[in-house]
Design a protein around this nucleic acid. Sequence first.
DNA 1: AGTGCCAAGTTAACCGATTCAACGGTGTCC
DNA 2: GGACACCGTTGAATCGGTTAACTTGGCACT
Lengths: 337, 337
Amino acid sequence: MTLQDVADAARVSKATASLALRANPRISEPTRMRVLEAVEALGYVYNQRAASLRTRRSYTIGLIIKDVSNPFNAELTSGAESQLAGKGYSLLLGATDDDMDKQSRMITTMLEGDVDGLILSVVAGTAMDSLRKWSQFCPMVLLNQYYEELAVDCVGMDDENGTERAMEHLIQQGHRRIAFVGGYNSALTRQRRLGSYRDILRQHHIKFDPALCIASPVTRRGGYDAIQQLLNMSLPPSGAYCYSDVIAFGVMLGLRAAGMEAGKDFAVIGFDDVPEATLWHPSLTTVSADPRGLGENAAQLALRRISAPDAPIRRVIMPSHLVLRDSTAPPLGERLN
Amino acid sequence: MTLQDVADAARVSKATASLALRANPRISEPTRMRVLEAVEALGYVYNQRAASLRTRRSYTIGLIIKDVSNPFNAELTSGAESQLAGKGYSLLLGATDDDMDKQSRMITTMLEGDVDGLILSVVAGTAMDSLRKWSQFCPMVLLNQYYEELAVDCVGMDDENGTERAMEHLIQQGHRRIAFVGGYNSALTRQRRLGSYRDILRQHHIKFDPALCIASPVTRRGGYDAIQQLLNMSLPPSGAYCYSDVIAFGVMLGLRAAGMEAGKDFAVIGFDDVPEATLWHPSLTTVSADPRGLGENAAQLALRRISAPDAPIRRVIMPSHLVLRDSTAPPLGERLN
DNA sequence: AGTGCCAAGTTAACCGATTCAACGGTGTCC
DNA sequence: GGACACCGTTGAATCGGTTAACTTGGCACT
């Protein structure tokens, strides 16, 4: 079934059929109806790929994240998808598992698939040159990553402000030994948060203790294992600022496995504010970063650059703020006073 | 940059360049090298879409699920993706949010995008005619759904056996009032599990109480709300068989919010065995259904049908078994004896 | 020398849409 | 009545690859 068949059935030319389908005003209403009826009768399915050859528009955007199972990414994906679907675009999804080779292969596949744009959560340690190269082939939006030297749009969250709010809260509650849990330091995002973490400690004249910084995979399991390690220290922390909600959930589970309870025996703060955060018991105090909004913004930036390739570079920083819930409390010692 | 440019640079014809890129033995090694060098020098990117016009292969498979944020689906997606990527296919992902219109639009988009196959987790209440129509346009694999009248491959889990194991376990522990929590009954999967649930009750001469069956969205929130409702009954249940792990997590959170603890004051069993299930405290007793394997199988079935359109229909039922962990315990009254 | 064959490459049609220049027909205006 | 604008439609080129069929030169064998 091709457009030619439809045209034949409607007794018009292929060109007319094409214009009719796209409601071009130059085609008269009766003719258009004939074409539409033929489409219906034949069960014709439009071939977007064939069209894209000519129009140079594939109406497909690639989204490359590290891990589908992190609810943060699930939300982000869902946000991007909803924006794109509304504009007639579809999403080609890829997960890299934070593996550089996989990322390379995936991007190549997507470029070959002729995506109109690429939204990319860069795997840590990716060479700037690779990014520059890829960004030449199609509009690219970077997630949570920002390179001064690279002229691409990006959208991220306000790591500094979020970290500041979270740490101030813990310190105000009286915590002095505060762990920084989760993520790998090759991620720029983590470097920024860790940097702010150290800044705040310094401002409050608290000595930075590297033993309190635990790197881990960004999974519940990662947080679970990290807190075990922390609790086994001779001088364990009384609270933890976690790299992400997923980590925080793991920490809370780990605490419980050790017979402790977040918000009672230990303070836990996350980052992201995924929907699940309100549901936990205790509910999770966390830095709200609106993952959905992040996805929406990324999609919009991509669409904007597709329609206006020469628009000025935009770097969107989503505001972040602390959402106080029940997983934080003053340290035990403090409360005994 | 097109293949023509590459051919010009390598001083061969377009055809030769095409063949060389695909390592056709009719092209001599020196010539092939010239072409490869030209590709490198020009930064040529292969255009899969253009090729697919002729080859009638897009090397793209559509996966349509209801909800990205359910870890079951995340695992399933990841399983499918890994199978496909290995064979040079990429995944076009869509989420329907269990909305029929969205499902329709999404499938249309995918068919227009000329996917080679479709893996579909059908939205409840979808008309058989629609499915039949869609399945005419490209190979289709149904997830957890099975229609006698429809000649399509499908892959599901053994709902009956899983339910049986779970219920037998609860009954053996002494539970008599066992809730069935979560999901909407329009889903075939739920109907099957609910059917088995009733069968087992009957076999054990336990009266079926419809008030103990709570329908809900398949989210943590769904389980959370449902258990509240159950605990407020005049004669509340002592245990719950949950439609999925996500529901079970919600139930456990709801229990805790009510000052109760799964595995102590209440028995909870889930279905799926997502990675998170081992991590919870108490860890979740659940019917293991290998979501990754489900995704892998679905992808394999799709690929198989693409390469052998006339192969006999296959309906794969993944075995399920009960994984005993800590969220189940005899009812309180029982233990007092 | 003539024949057959092979290896290596080229030509041109083709996939299914879009798009632009051109076309015939009709109505308008001077 | 002829020039002109306008309208709806169409033929043909085009997008970037693939592939069947054909060409060409070289070598071997008789």
